[in-house]
Amino acid sequence: MTDRDIHASADNLEVAGNPVAPIPAEKTRSQWRDVWDQFKTHKGAVLGLFFLVFITLFCVAGPWIWTVDPGALDVRNKDVRPIYTAIWDSNAKVNWARPMGTDNLGRDQMANLMQGGRISLAVGWTAMILAILIGTLIGVLAGYFRAIDGLLMRFTDLVLALPLLPLLLVMMLLFRDPLRASFGPEQGIFILVVTGIGITSWMQTARIVRGDVMAIKEREFVLAARSIGTPARRMITRHILPNVLSPIMVSATLGLAVAIITESALSFLGLGFPSDFPTWGKILNDSVPRMTRFPERVILPGMAISLTVLSVNYIGDGLRDALDPRIRGM
């Protein structure tokens, strides 16, 4: 996002305060321009977008500026507090070279949060998108085509009933070494983790989408569209999908949080990344026993996860409003 956009959205904040205020209309406007204009009026969405860009830049570009190795141990400088603790506690062990402090083995927290964020964000987004794609596909197909509904839903029941732990262990047994051989240790595990989370978290989306599709399928406008001979494919993409977008958006935001947290659980089973790969969930989990003495170690990763999820949620809200022609028209 450029500076100008931020100012532009700031200008629009007043407008957003009064949703019925007409947005100055221009003659030739693309649909996406409309969507963007509407999106800009959503305070939360703009803030969310801003934060998401910020946290992504922090993790992706951060390590180029802050070149400390996240794995480097420095036991003499362990348990350094973040510099801001010096404000109220002049005896705190702080170090300007470690602005967010260090952990119990002297690893730099800021570098770890950056590196951890890279993995957590990548895993979170990819697994969430995978789950949403599978869930939506199965949900729409089952809801729209009655012939395959039974089969797909019984399949969903089956996956819901499978115990997660043995499933993941079996996946690891079968695929870890081949993936490691063909993609290298890091990429291989990434694929495994993302697939593991993706294929075990699509069922709720599928059931919800199916329920909504079944209801929408019976609405008048669908009947109308069908009566003019709209092919099924067109029906789904033009008429059904846009109307089930909002539960999908909710699933997506919740799914992102679930994926980031599940990843940290996986690493404890030995299915996730090796212990020397930090992720937000893992930093948080490792720090829980020491949270009274070093609250920052849980607060920083915890906030990173929460705020990311929150901003994605607001962006989702904004997008949904922006994509809904009924609201946009107002």
Binding site: G44, T253, L254, A257, I260, I261, S264, G281, L284, N285, V288, M291, V298, G302, I305, S306, T308, V309, L310, N313, Y314, D317
Partner: peptide
């Protein structure tokens, strides 16, 4: 919205403790 999203994204292994 704020409370429910924060609540959802804070894992129980943290909020419980």
């Amino acid at each position: 919205t704020f409370i429910s999203m924060i609540g959802f994204s804070v894992p129980p292994f943290f909020s419980g403790v």
